[in-house]
Amino acid sequence: MDGGSRFHGAIWRSGCNNGTCVEVASQHGRVGVRDGKDAGAGPVLSFTFEEWRAFITAAKNGEFDV
């Protein structure tokens, strides 16, 4: 988890589903993910590109479906 300093000045993109929003940014070789409702004040989860790619692939393959 990152306090967000690594992503200072990054361009955040938002995705929402039923009122739940997540923001994602890429900067300095990392991908940051944060809660969209915290207006940038909350914590940032930080991943390498490889970790992020593995997560996206798993999600697309339904590995997290309940």
Rank of each mutant, 00 (worst) to 15 (best):
G29I: 08
D38Y: 02
L45C: 05
G42W: 02
N17D: 10
F55V: 05
A54Q: 14
A10Y: 15
G4D: 11
D65R: 13
C21K: 08
F7Y: 10
A39L: 10
G40C: 04
T48R: 02
G15D: 09
D38T: 14
N18P: 00
V24R: 02
R53N: 14
A25W: 14
E23H: 09
H28E: 09
M1Y: 06
V22C: 10
G4W: 07
H28Q: 12
P43F: 06
A58V: 07
F55C: 02
G29L: 10
H28F: 14
R30M: 08
D2E: 15
D35K: 08
C21Q: 02
F64G: 04
C21V: 07
F64W: 14
R30V: 01
A58G: 13
M1P: 01
R6P: 00
G9T: 06
V24E: 09
R6S: 08
T48N: 01
V66I: 05
F55Y: 13
P43Q: 08
S14N: 07
T57F: 05
I11F: 06
F55E: 04
K60I: 01
Q27W: 07
N17R: 15
H8L: 10
S26E: 14
G9Y: 03
G36P: 10
G3Y: 06
D35C: 07
T57L: 13
G36H: 10
D2P: 06
A25T: 11
F64P: 03
H8D: 13
A25S: 09
A39F: 07
N61A: 15
V33S: 11
G15E: 11
D35Q: 05
K60A: 01
D2M: 03
F55D: 02
W52N: 03
A41M: 08
N18L: 11
Q27Y: 12
G42P: 03
F7R: 08
M1Q: 03
V22I: 15
P43L: 12
H8V: 08
E23M: 10
G15A: 12
A10F: 14
N17K: 14
V24P: 06
G3Q: 05
